[in-house]
């Protein structure tokens, strides 16, 4: 099943909690999430860790409707209703997928500025999964 096991989740905690990417020492490309071999030069396995700012711009998004969520998100969808999932272009280059929070689906627009916040994603087998979501940057909400 498409199931994120606890060990699989744990291995990615530096990315999920701290937005830690890998900068290729050969070509400088920031790989986030990490790849085995640099995504850009496709040669180097030599990386250094780099903490991303979490600031970015919405490239595209969708609004997952009630009753359409994966089962581990059914509680969120039941109590919270629809939720937004976006592709965000981080200022440092990588594009990443995450939920939006602290905003209403109707307010979301392609090109909107957002920043990462660490939130609770879901709980499964009694274990909470935390991870980054994005919320609108204040300047964007204020126009």
């Amino acid at each position: 099943m498409a199931y994120v096991s606890v060990p699989l989740y744990k291995r990615t905690i530096p990315q999920r909690y701290g937005l830690v990417g890998l900068r290729c020492k050969k070509c400088g490309w920031i790989n986030f999430p990490p790849k085995g071999v640099c995504k850009n030069c496709k040669e180097s396995l030599d990386f250094e860790k780099v903490k991303l700012s979490g600031k970015g711009t919405i490239y595209s998004y969708t609004v997952i409707s009630a009753a359409a969520a994966p089962p581990e998100f059914s509680k969120q969808e039941k109590y919270g209703g629809t939720y937004v999932v976006a592709l965000v272009d981080l200022d440092e280059g990588p594009r990443i997928v995450a939920q939006l929070t602290d905003c209403k689906p109707g307010e979301v627009k392609i090109g909107m500025r957002v920043k990462a916040v660490l939130r609770r994603i879901y709980e499964d087998e009694g274990v909470i999964r935390y991870g980054f979501k994005f919320k609108p940057q204040e300047e964007d909400l204020n126009g």
């Binding site: 199931y3 994120v4 699989l8 989740y9 997952i64 994966p70 997928v97 939920q99 994603i121 879901y122």
Partner: peptide, 11 residues
Amino acid sequence: DTEYERLAGMT
């Protein structure tokens, strides 16, 4: 992609 798309609640 299970690790990221699924954990974002993507369908």
